[in-house]
């Protein structure tokens, strides 16, 4: 009796798993062969780099239908670069006086140019999962790191990186323009 029940069930499960595997692999193979890439031009001057560390922690407490909690803790370091996007630079705003060797440059306001949270800099330092619960999946861990990424990005205006980027951009252009022979250099941001 037991055999009669288990044989068709096992066959059904085998069919389902085989079908899924074939379908998944086919579409994946197609996707893996097709290279999706693009090369674009940029015109940015990064003037400051910040390293920001953050502890990302989450507690998944048991709901009424669950037993036991799950806790996880990451320590991550993100690299943020800020500077000026020279695509927004308006050459008509430059005032040059060749006789007096003076120049007035109006640069665009500093902005965050890149945010980099490499996988190896996101270290999982603690994980506790009750025996009655499933481990954190790779998808869940990545979703938590995504929230951490968003929190750092949301805090960019309070970090002071944009002010430093403008200060450094002004210093860079002053040094460059003095090497180019200008004696009076004024840098503005607008």
């Amino acid at each position: 009796m037991k055999k009669l029940f288990w044989i068709p069930a096992a066959l059904l499960l085998l069919c389902i798993s085989c079908k899924q595997d074939v379908l998944t692999n086919l579409s994946l193979r197609e996707k893996m062969n097709a290279k999706i890439s693009e090369l674009t031009e940029m015109n940015e001057l990064g003037t400051v780099e910040y390293k920001v560390t953050k502890v990302i922690k989450a507690s998944d407490d048991a709901k009424w239908y669950q037993f036991g909690d799950r806790k996880i803790l990451f320590q991550c370091t993100a690299i943020l670069k800020a500077g000026v996007d020279l695509n927004k630079f308006d050459p008509s705003k430059i005032k040059v006086n060749e006789e007096e060797k003076s120049i007035m440059l109006t640069l665009p306001k500093a902005e965050l140019l890149s945010f980099n949270l490499p996988p190896e800099s996101a270290k999982m330092v603690y994980e506790k999962v009750a025996i009655t619960r499933f481990d954190f999946s790779a998808r869940e861990r990545n979703l938590l790191l995504q929230q951490g990424e968003k929190e750092i990005l949301d805090n960019v205006p309070t970090l002071g990186i944009l002010q430093d980027a403008e200060k450094n951009a002004a210093a860079f252009f002053k040094s460059l323009l003095s090497q180019m022979g200008f004696e009076s250099i004024t840098i503005k941001f607008a």
Partner: peptide
Amino acid sequence: LKIDETANVVTEIRKIAQFTSACYY
């Protein structure tokens, strides 16, 4: 899952002068 609010700590500041002219996606 929601993460708990934690501080963002700036551990290093470096002056750079990187002129990015191309980007590959």
